[in-house]
Nucleic acid binder design. Structure first.
Length: 235
DNA sequence: GATAGGGGTTGCATTCTCGG
DNA sequence: CCGAGAATGCAACCCCTATC
């Protein structure tokens, strides 16, 4: 599990302070926390609701059903608790900001490293492809005039399909990683910027490779270009 | 009807606190 | 120091509504 963003008893105190401003429903509290920390820390529902239930059991908040939503409101006991621990509350915000900044730095470093090794692998693969001996020409088909170019197109389509699979696999993995980070509240705006830059660089590298390939007479470069066009904005 | 998103619950693992 | 209990946090899930 990732280290706790809030110190012991601090989340509960922070929830009380949010409810002191005005009554809110659970999801609104999650969003308020996310807004308050610039999206760097967004607690999961399973974090907030048990806390709210505890607070209710302790008589520090009350809940009222507003249609499908449950609106939580601070009680006098909750206000008293908040007043008694006001000094603790003051330090929480800066503490949490520091904590999420630390986590964001770790994520940024890990994404940076991953992109660097990916680019290195891509460049190595491109070098290998260029230096490889060309495959033996297909046996001449006596009756089919266009068979050679049609075989080449078939190869190209197979390679395109392979490339698409590789891209899909990459997207799936990256998505899963990002969702994991987001779920833990570790996905910051900075990380998204790093991701955008990294993917831009990656695309530039692939595009350069494709240009070399197409200058060497490799077919299908235009089609692979289209695949990448579809993909880069979606990760 | 399928899909996406909002609102909420449950169960469980990990970490922390505190009393003996 | 150790064990029990409290606190924190997450994943998985459900239900309902809106949209396509």
């Amino acid at each position: 599990m990732s280290p706790a963003v809030f110190g012991h008893g601090h989340l509960r105190l922070y929830l009380l302070s949010l409810l002191e401003e005005r009554p809110r429903h659970g999801y609104e509290l999650i969003q308020a926390l996310g807004d308050r920390f610039g999206g760097t820390y967004v607690p999961s529902a399973g974090t907030i609701y048990p806390r709210l239930s505890k607070l209710e059991a302790e008589g520090l908040v009350t809940k009222q059903n507003d249609g499908r939503k449950t609106v939580y409101e601070i009680t006098d006991a909750g206000r008293a608790e908040l007043a008694a621990r006001r000094h603790e509350l003051d330090g929480i915000e800066s503490e949490v900001t520091d904590s999420v900044r630390r986590l964001a730095d770790e994520v940024r470093a890990s994404v940076d490293g991953a992109m660097r090794s990916l680019r290195a692998e891509l460049a190595a693969a491109a070098r290998e492809t260029r230096s490889a001996t060309p495959p033996p020409p297909p046996p001449p088909a006596p009756h089919a005039a266009g068979a050679s170019s049609s075989n080449t197109r078939l190869d190209s389509r197979l390679r395109l399909s392979e490339a698409e699979q590789a891209i899909a696999h990459f997207r799936q993995q990256l998505r899963s990683d990002l969702r994991g980070h987001a779920a833990r509240g570790e996905l910051s705006r900075e990380t998204v910027d790093v991701l955008r830059t990294g993917l831009g660089d990656l695309r530039a590298a692939v595009t350069a490779t494709l240009r070399v390939g197409s200058a060497d007479g490799a077919p299908g470069a235009a089609a692979e270009h289209d695949v990448l066009d579809d993909d880069t904005g979606a990760a």
